[in-house]
Nucleic acid binder design. Structure first.
Lengths: 211, 211
DNA sequence: AGTAAAATCACCAATTCAGGTGATTGTCGG
DNA sequence: CCGACAATCACCTGAATTGGTGATTTTACT
């Protein structure tokens, strides 16, 4: 089925060409609006899968619009579109629930790909925006330096259950294996984490976000 | 000038085709290695602008390699390449200093674009990976509701030692009290936290920031 | 085809833990 | 002064944990 796209963009020329672009690419533009007035009604009527949202609009800003849309229509995926690449705007857009963030200088071809990817559940970002996100991400989590710890799937599963306070016996039951096997896995986990007790393992798992 | 690319990839076939791809796209592959042995030497000789790094390699893992490269050659930009899209691997790679993270199922064309974007200072990410990053990003800014837990000074002290993985005996020694007293305190802590094991207490202590 | 890692199970010893009971201080506020 | 509570210690029992050795099977990669 065709991807239904709604456009919010105050520049008329750009709005029209985006509409044109969408419609000639096997998708369908079910609405193109110059601002976020009557937002709920416009979304309800156009029933979009993906919203292309300009950050800078008269009246309600694109970021506020994202918050409102995400609250009322959580399933709708939103691709921000803007000329700005300030950290705070990017941050605000992501926290508001945007699924992607493209710069307007992006080529039409890439923009279409981005809409497609957004529809399919991915996050489309212009590389420079993505770079800023990684930067922010690192600065937020620079509290503990992360050793790289390679646990097998099973080990991660068991570590998760350990963190939840399960005993070997309970883990054995949950994983359909014997308590002896749990013990073996736990021993391997301890070796990889360089710890010698459950509490150390649990503490490390949480601090290093292994679970 | 041509972009110089070094490849780390344990699978020989893939390594050769990547090399081929790079060389036929106006870039130059200055090195292709099956593992991270002699990492420093190989980087020094190949002088790459961009490193294509497989996460899963025998010996030193790709993530450890990233840490080492970033430490010795901060200017080198690294594009991770892997079949895995586990949160923890992505997280570790980003924190280690990777500039991008592409899935191996990515088309050769997109892979070349990614190398190009990486070289130009952007961050190339497969959309599904980018989605996970946004997810992690949002979840980091969320705050856990905290119950009202009133621990005595001594209890907080002992809980802290528990979180650090100390045994009752070690705690007894550290606090100059008997192991039996530690046991009593721990019992009281469990009651106040509504838990029944060391691991649960440790997990709760960390999540509620009691320590 | 052959090696390496992961996952599985078993047996075993020594230690640790969880929770029950009971008791002695010291401190604080009413 | 008394009751409540924190802090201290002791003894006990059954269950859980840690860590060692050894082995089989499956899966993945070379």
């Amino acid at each position: 089925m065709e991807i239904k796209v709604a456009i919010f963009e105050d520049n008329k020329k750009l709005r029209e060409s985006l509409k044109e672009l969408i419609n000639t690419a096997g998708m369908v533009c079910t609405g193109a609006f110059p601002d976020a007035a009557n937002l709920i009604r416009n979304i309800t009527f156009s029933m979009p899968d993906v919203v292309l949202m300009d950050i800078h609009m008269p009246g309600i800003s694109g970021i506020e619009a994202v918050q409102i849309i995400k609250e009322k229509f959580p399933a709708v995926r939103i691709l921000m579109q803007t000329v700005f690449e300030d950290d705070d705007k990017i941050f605000a857009a992501i926290c508001a629930g945007a699924s992607g963030y493209m710069l307007k200088k992006t080529t039409p071809q890439k923009m279409l790909e981005a809409v497609e990817e957004t529809y399919q559940g991915g996050a489309a970002m212009s590389p420079s925006v993505a770079g800023k996100v990684l930067q922010m991400f690192r600065s937020q989590s620079s509290i503990a330096k992360h050793e790289f710890i390679q646990l097998s799937e099973r080990e991660k599963e068991i570590l998760g259950l350990l963190v939840n306070g399960k005993s070997y016996k309970a883990i054995a039951a949950a994983c359909f294996i014997s308590a002896d096997t749990v013990s073996t896995h736990v021993r391997h986990i301890y070796e990889k984490l360089h710890v010698h007790s459950k509490s150390e393992a649990v503490a490390k798992a949480i601090k290093q976000k292994l679970v």
